[in-house]
Amino acid sequence: QEELVKAFKALLKEEKFSSQGEIVAALQEQGFDNINQSKVSRMLTKFGAVRTRNAKMEMVYCLPAELGV
């Protein structure tokens, strides 16, 4: 569980995922086979993730800066 949270936060820091499906796929690539869209959705809510525009003006998920991840 701890490893999943770390990987999840690291992915969001990249600010390149525009959908929950993309986050699920990226986590599965890292070996988290039991991850699915509903789990990702709950984690996004739990950590207060928001959708914002990145440098390329794409809408992407990211974590609020005050979490200091």
Rank of each mutant, 00 (worst) to 15 (best):
Q1H: 10
E3L: 12
L4N: 00
K6Y: 10
A7W: 05
A7G: 03
F8V: 07
F8R: 00
K9E: 08
K9W: 10
A10D: 09
A10P: 03
L11N: 00
L11W: 03
L11H: 03
L12A: 01
L12E: 00
E14M: 14
E14N: 05
E15V: 05
E15G: 07
E15H: 06
K16E: 06
K16I: 09
K16A: 10
F17P: 03
F17N: 01
S18Y: 05
S18M: 10
S18C: 04
S19W: 07
S19G: 06
S19V: 05
Q20I: 15
Q20R: 14
G21S: 14
G21D: 13
G21C: 03
I23T: 00
V24R: 06
V24Q: 05
V24G: 03
V24N: 02
A25S: 13
A25H: 10
A26E: 09
A26L: 05
A26C: 03
L27G: 00
Q28N: 09
Q28C: 06
Q28Y: 09
E29N: 11
E29R: 09
E29Y: 10
E29I: 12
E29L: 10
Q30W: 08
G31E: 02
G31A: 03
F32M: 02
F32N: 01
F32P: 02
D33R: 12
D33M: 12
I35L: 07
I35D: 01
N36L: 05
S38Q: 13
K39P: 01
V40E: 00
M43V: 01
L44F: 03
T45E: 14
T45P: 03
K46S: 12
K46N: 11
K46E: 15
K46Y: 14
F47G: 02
F47V: 11
G48W: 03
G48M: 05
A49T: 03
R51P: 04
R51G: 03
R51A: 05
R51M: 15
T52M: 15
R53K: 13
R53D: 04
N54A: 02
A55M: 06
K56V: 07
M57Y: 11
E58L: 07
E58M: 07
E58Q: 12
E58D: 07
M59P: 04
M59K: 04
V60M: 03
Y61C: 01
Y61F: 07
C62N: 05
C62W: 06
C62L: 06
C62I: 10
L63Q: 03
L63M: 09
L63T: 02
P64Y: 05
P64G: 05
A65F: 12
A65L: 14
G68C: 06
G68H: 07
G68V: 07
V69M: 07
